[in-house]
C-alpha cells in the first residue's frame, strides 16, 4: 500500500463520515459546520487527482463563500434548538435510504463492469497518477502544461468553452439579482 493510497483512504473516509454527519444532524448549524471537514476531504482528493487549481477554488468558493452564506442564513433565521422540530422518522428515512442505496448500487455496478481493472481508462489513470507524484509541486519542468495547472485549464476554458463560460457568468449575474430581489423586504 502506497502512501498515496493511505491519503486517499483517509480523505475518502473523512468525506464519507462528514457527509453522513451533515445529513443526519438535527440542528442545521452542525450540518454546516461539518461541511468544513467535508470540503477539506474533497480538496485533498482534488489535489490527489491532479486538480490543484480546482482544489484551491473548492476551498475558496465552497469553504469561503457558500459555507459562510449558509451559516449566515442560519444565524439570520436564528432558530433556537428547542424550536427545531425533530425530523427523523422511519417513514422518511427508509424510502430515502432505499432510493439512495439503489442509486449508489447502480452506479457502482456500472463502474465495476464498465471499467474493469486493467482497462485503458484505468491504466491511463495510473500513468497519470505516477506523473502526478512529481507534479504535486506545480508545473515544474514539463514543456506542455501539466494537467490541472492554471494554463491547462485557462486555455481550453477561453477557447473551446468560452460560450458556456459566458453563459455561466450571465447565470451568476441573474442569480445575484434574483437573490437580491427575493430577499428584499416587502417583495
Amino acid at each position: 500500500m502506497d502512501w498515496i493510497d493511505v491519503v486517499f483512504i483517509l480523505s475518502g473516509l473523512l468525506c464519507l463520515g462528514s457527509a453522513c454527519t451533515i445529513v443526519t444532524r438535527k440542528n442545521p448549524v452542525y450540518s454546516v459546520i461539518f461541511m468544513l471537514p467535508f470540503f477539506l476531504g474533497m480538496t485533498i482528493l482534488f489535489i490527489l487527482l491532479s486538480a490543484p487549481f480546482l482544489a484551491a477554488m473548492q476551498m475558496m468558493v465552497y469553504g469561503g463563500a457558500i459555507l459562510v452564506v449558509f451559516l449566515f442564513v442560519i444565524m439570520l433565521i436564528n432558530l433556537r434548538p428547542e424550536e427545531i422540530k425533530d425530523d427523523f422518522s422511519l417513514w422518511t428515512y427508509t424510502p430515502a435510504a432505499a432510493v439512495g442505496g439503489v442509486l449508489g448500487g447502480l452506479i457502482l455496478s456500472f463502474v465495476r463492469h464498465g471499467i474493469p481493472d486493467g482497462s485503458e481508462l484505468d491504466k491511463n489513470f495510473h500513468a497519470a497518477v505516477n506523473n502526478s507524484r512529481l507534479m504535486l509541486d506545480l508545473g515544474m519542468g514539463g514543456v506542455a502544461p501539466p494537467l490541472g495547472s492554471i494554463d491547462s485549464i485557462a486555455i481550453p476554458m477561453f477557447k473551446q468553452y468560452v460560450v458556456p463560460f459566458e453563459l455561466v457568468s450571465i447565470l451568476i449575474v441573474v442569480a445575484v439579482l434574483g437573490a437580491v430581489i427575493l430577499a428584499k423586504k416587502r417583495v
Binding site: P95, A96, V99, V102, L103, L106
Partner: peptide
C-alpha cells in the same frame, strides 16, 4: 423522491 425515482428509471 419522484424526480429521483424517475431518474433511476431512466438510468436503469
Amino acid at each position: 423522491t419522484g424526480i429521483l425515482v424517475g431518474a433511476l428509471a431512466i438510468l436503469f
